[in-house]
């Protein structure tokens, strides 16, 4: 089983829509995929029509004996399951801090999912916290959405520094998100980003179909598979699959 965290410290850059659409693409591609909604806002769960709130959500992560796998729910899509968000996740930092070895515990929890899944995609809260730190130290790769703007680029730099400070070699996979080619700056900065070999080459366009996910409450490819955004997510997934050697 491979694990991929979608994370950034800046909000509104297409993090959750990437997590949901990529999870759907991976499931369609024949991977038993689990989307783990770690963001207490629960937007990923909402997109998949899964009501947030799980009894014992925090304990299932921090306590040794509580099985996380028991909380996994089916979604409307083949091969795609979800661990929905819980508002109690806002206290996850404190709970993790109270465990002896948070990273080890979290890694063991993730291992417990390997029997039934080929891939776990974690939608992380957009902040620097013990939760993100623990996740980043544990997963195989960290996917970072970057809007081609000065602030976003600055954030990417901060994120990279943070990840390298964790001293663990998780792959860092930045990709261009919400790209609007009508904007000159998006063009220029986008090109600059793609010169960086770490960047994934597929860019996700800024598209109303993605924004409308809040209304359709489904991955773009499930409702409008021929839309450019849907194709872009599929292509991005393929590129990630290759980079992560899944």
């Amino acid at each position: 089983m491979k694990s991929l965290a979608v994370w950034t410290i800046k909000g509104g850059v297409g993090k959750t829509s990437a997590a949901v659409n990529l999870a759907h693409a991976a499931a369609t591609d024949g991977l038993r995929t689990l989307l783990w909604d770690l963001d207490p806002q629960g937007a990923a769960s909402f997109y998949l029509r899964i009501p947030p709130g799980m009894e014992g959500a925090v304990e299932s992560i921090t306590r040794k004996r509580t099985a996380l796998a028991d909380l996994v729910l089916p979604t409307e899509f083949d091969n795609l399951t979800i661990l929905p968000a819980d508002f109690a996740y806002r206290h996850l930092d404190l709970a993790l801090d109270a465990t002896k070895k948070p990273r080890k515990r979290f890694a063991a929890k993730l291992d417990g999912l390997a029997d039934r899944h080929d891939l776990v995609i974690l939608d992380c809260p957009p902040s620097v916290s013990l939760v993100s730190e623990t996740v980043i130290k544990t997963v195989d790769a960290v996917l970072i959405p970057v809007i081609p703007s000065t602030l976003s680029m600055r954030t990417l730099h901060q994120v990279r520094v943070f990840i390298s400070e964790q001293g663990r070699g998780a792959d860092v996979l930045p990709f261009l998100s919400m790209v609007d080619l009508r904007k000159k700056m998006h063009n220029e900065l986008g090109l600059a980003c793609l010169a960086d070999p770490a960047f994934l080459t597929v860019a996700i366009p800024s598209a109303s179909v993605v924004e409308k996910m809040g209304i359709t409450r489904a991955p773009v490819a499930a409702t409008l598979p021929s839309q450019p955004a849907a194709r872009a997510f599929t292509a991005l997934w393929r590129e990630i699959r290759e980079r992560m050697e899944i």
């Binding site: 998949l48 029509r49 899964i50 009501p51 089916p74 979604t75 409450r217």
Partner: peptide
Amino acid sequence: GRVENHEGDMVAR
């Protein structure tokens, strides 16, 4: 299809 509750959440696939 799916069965939804009054909030549009999926209750069953």
